[in-house]
Write a protein that binds this DNA or RNA. Sequence first.
RNA 1: GGGCUCAUCGUUCAUCGGUUAGGACCUCGGACUGUCGAUCCGAAGAGGGGAGUUCGAUUCUCCCUGAGCCCGCCA
Length: 603
Amino acid sequence: MADLHPYRTHTCNQLRKEDAGKTVRLSGWMFRLRDHGGILFVDLRDHYGITQIVVHPSRSFFGLVEKAHLESVITVTGEVKLRDPETINPDLPTGEIEIEANELVMESASAVTPIYIPDEKADESEEMRLKYRFLDLRREKLHKNIMLRSQVIRFLREQMWAKGFNEFQTPILTASSPEGARDYLVPSRIHRGQFYALPQAPQMFKQLLMVSGFDRYFQIAPCFRDEAARADRSPGEFYQLDIEMSYATQDEIFAVVEDVVSATFRKFSTWTCNAAPWPRIKYRDAMMVYGSDKPDLRNPLKWFDMSDFFRRANFKAFAACVEHGGLVKGLLVKGIVGVETRTWFDKREAFVKENGGKGLGYISWTRDGELKGPIAKFLSPEQLEEMKSLAKMEPGDCLFFMAADPDECHRLSGLVRTNIADNMTNDVREHGCYKFCWIVDFPFFEKDPETGKIIFSHNPFSMPQGGLKALNEMPPLDIVAYQYDVVCNGIELSSGAIRNHLPEVMYKAFEIAGYTKDVVEQKFGALHSAFQFGAPPHGGIAPGVDRMVMLLADTANIREVIAFPMNQKAQDLMMNAPNFVTEQQLRELHIKIRGTDGETRVP
RNA sequence: GGGCUCAUCGUUCAUCGGUUAGGACCUCGGACUGUCGAUCCGAAGAGGGGAGUUCGAUUCUCCCUGAGCCCGCCA
């Protein structure tokens, strides 16, 4: 046996009945132990699988194994034996054999683990799981998620290379960027009082690579933003499949993403995907129909504009709303009258009020032909008839109404659309599918609700449709940009734009948003400078890697697809980051901590 | 910055203001030569911190601390 590899000749998912009789060596963790007094069974686990080890009482190491804690790492040498037919375990790929241990080495004894690894359904606090992440990652579910992530990233890379894209690295220590999210700052030791920033995205670098003539760029790019986390938003840092293309039209960029993302979802999930080209929904239509710029298209419910109808109808509350610039929308829900109870309808209305709305009107067409509901009595028989044909209503259907200022109306209608679908007795949503769509034509500018100022609504790098002419001639709020998102099942997967590579257009756009030429040249110095020397028209996009894997793993929490995530407060509980540093370190960085409770604490 | 929910053995979940604070898993001890979430017997092990209400608080109230989710934020 001296010629065997010191740790293993096979993995724990390799041996089959054909291997019977071989002398083998396996290493792994003691996953489970079944102690029958006279005989021990150890489920030996490694990355690949599980193999049963049998330890007979005559062996010198019998006592060692019997007393060992689970999760200890051992190396076992022994003979592959066929199991008796009645002891075959059909649940294990290696279930037809077992290893009869002749030698055993305790490589690394484990203490009692704070979480019990075999219990996949255990529901420890996330705090506990994050603190002992290296243990949680041993569990099959999480281990698989991280492997899925690894394979997805590999596949994304392969596809990008195959499409002629080149992979580049861009700096991690860079300059603080104007606009956008809060930067993570890194103090400079050499330059007193100056700071680097971690990139929120390699946005300017990838554009500069286009100016440098590299034509097609991609990177699995780390992005850092010092903003609050959510269940679907990783705190601090996340990864994007960052893409930029020279001389590309919006349609060409869409085609690349449709190809790459579709292929990825088809490869790594059994769920169906809607075929490319994906629906392209204008931002304004998305807000009108779905009340959201990230609609879940598995939900078939759609709002439509009834402002014109209610302007003419003699229901004063809605007519007044429309007169004052508001919006009235209708949502037809088929076949729920007589299915859902009065309480159900009351709950929908209560939901709207909880979310700041005035209420939720509706008219039900009962199975015996009556039109009922809080609003029905305000409409004349002719108007009710018009409403029915407008909404394509049938007996058993209910028409909901939302009336408010446009922004508020969209917001509430989006919430209601989801709330109704979530609570219907007969679920109308599709399941087991990924529904992709493009949201296009985002507004270039919007009005700051607090100051009333015109501000960039998405990002100042994108090209306004109509170019300089539009900026000069159109009301700013009517201008749309070559700015687009990919949305899948209600999750924003990706965001991108055809860039603005023309200095004059930059100046004008920033002027409308209240910035002078100087500011443009100062804040976007490199980009502005680069555009003076021949810049190719270019555009790009950046699908979120974490979110793609999250959808593929069918988990609601993005931390389930990140090996070492931070908690919602952007703390790494395992590494204890962030943490205090020594006075010496602070001195080198010319930093003094402000305030009373933030005194420098030396660990 | 704000809102909601939560905090009990190592873990997880119970417990009407009066209980020897209970179960499951883990742990420890014992039995057991074919199990595979082994089984059986036994044992150990808990109210985050601080105020208050009360004859009496794990339970009610407030503050602090910590956690999760949401809003703001995330061009």
